[in-house]
Design a protein around this nucleic acid. Structure first.
Lengths: 272, 272
DNA sequence: CTTGACTCTCAGGTGACCTGAGGGTGTATA
DNA sequence: TATACACCCTCAGGTCACCTGAGAGTCAAG
């Protein structure tokens, strides 16, 4: 008959934790005094407690440990749980490894530029969307407005003519690589909420959900190259690779005040 | 002016999370309608949100991120935080790696023995303790009781004669390696609560706090070898090394019923 | 004017504990 | 025998980064 404090000293587990394990039905004292509520343990309970600690050390939750300590658990089930745990730990391991890579990339960037980077890259999954699109080839970089403008007008007109509605989102897909600025192959798209028939000039299809690396660019379209550079560098430094045409999503756009625009640049990526 | 739901869709952050960031003063809407409580965001806030997400991805807490986003933080401080984070991530990384090793050791053991291992090894720090000790050499393994018994009597007598008190804990230090069972060099110790003078035969000193790998052995002393074997195997499989004489701590001990004893076996270890 | 999508606040939950308040218990010493 | 002191109890509330759900108010379209 060992009082909780002595049992705590023996096992190096805090009194609070022992009470918590009691409450969880994970390790119940051999006796609880009915009048005082005092908990009394036995030396025979140390192996069970040690098993709990060992399993906790392997990363199992108390709930899982309770299962594993219950008798009637087959060896197969036990092995299954261990294997699941192994794969989870492997996952966490690689997560931490990637995190470390990202931290080191940021440190290097600080060394080089003497400031926090201007762009923060985030990985996300762009949702599936139904779009109406007009694809055009643009001879030189400064002709972009002159080609994209009419392309968008054409798409919007078509949508209106079909009696459908856009939901306000529009984006451009650039089929040429990010570092090519001549004869670019681009696609002006407007998101719509229900299917329409397509034509030769206007295609209607669904963009599937896509994992992308993204940055927010604020200001003129001419400075997009900076965002592209930041993204390309990040993608390279963090072990991703580009797997499709990149997207420009126009979040804030006023013709009269182009330098106050906000645009998201998204590169579809996968882990290399 | 973007409503919270649209801002959530743009940023792929849940509405709940945005409200939480507002409450944390991490990202406050540009405007909150005083009557309805509706939050309104601006596209200009996306870069800040992206920075929050990027830093969260590096493993920082929201509290740390708040600091890092506050202006007036020098580049030096920033670099310091990143370096701290790097070392913490490295720590977690090696923790997970060790965890993986332990899981795989357990899986192997299950394959071999077709059951959960009998002993669960835990790493802990044995606290510092003040002891009175009598060191004796024991010719053969079956003479252990015949030598240790008188040694303990001598220590207890000495403590009593000095008018001091033992606190009930006693242990044996084995200076010979665990796999040697002849001519063993052992030390019978009793924990005391205040300093005593020593003699030729009885030494009084403080055992420093020591990191140990430990198992609980239940039953006869003759079966200790199994516990030793389990410990040695674990220590080897998990990349530790033994750095001192091992200890036997008598937790439950009745002369009349030796097979109902409980003993802790502790090997002082360090990471190899 | 209704419908339906959206928004608000507030309370409570998650896991594995820890802290502290307020009060009872057990034993050794003056 | 009184008292000091270490120990034990329960219960409430906190941690972190959110999520769930209830109940009620708001907005835009039809």
């Amino acid at each position: 008959m060992i009082k909780i404090g002595d049992f705590a000293r023996l096992s190096q587990v805090s009194v609070v934790t022992l009470r918590y394990y009691d409450e969880m039905d994970l390790l119940e004292p051999v006796k609880v005094d009915h009048f005082t509520g005092y908990r009394y343990y036995s030396a025979d309970q140390l192996p069970r407690l040690n098993r709990i600690l060992a399993l906790k050390d392997l990363g199992f939750s108390l709930e899982q440990i309770k299962l594993m300590l219950a008798d009637g658990l087959s060896l197969e089930q036990l092995r299954g749980m261990l294997e699941m745990q192994r794969s989870q730990v492997e996952q966490r391991l690689s997560d931490e490894q990637e995190r470390l890579v990202r931290i080191e990339a940021r440190l290097r960037q600080i060394e080089l530029e003497d400031q926090m980077p201007n762009y923060d890259v985030v990985i996300k999954t762009a949702p599936a969307m139904l779009v109406a699109a007009r694809r055009v080839r643009i001879p030189t970089n400064d002709q972009v407005p002159e080609y994209l403008g009419p392309a968008y007008s054409e798409v919007y007109d078509y949508i209106r003519k079909q009696g459908a509605k856009d939901n306000g989102q529009c984006l451009t897909l650039w089929h040429s690589p990010a570092d090519v600025y001549a004869n670019e192959d681009s696609e002006a798209m407007v998101v719509i909420d229900r299917p329409l028939p397509g034509t030769d000039r206007i295609k209607v299809y669904e963009l599937p959900p896509t994992q992308v690396a993204a940055v927010i660019h604020q200001g003129n379209f001419e400075e997009f190259t900076q965002g592209h550079a930041a993204l390309l560098e990040w993608i390279d430094a963090n072990g991703y690779k580009i797997v499709g045409p990149y997207r420009e999503i126009y979040i804030k756009y006023e013709k009269d005040n182009l330098s106050d625009s906000t645009t998201e640049i998204q590169f579809p990526v996968e882990k290399a």
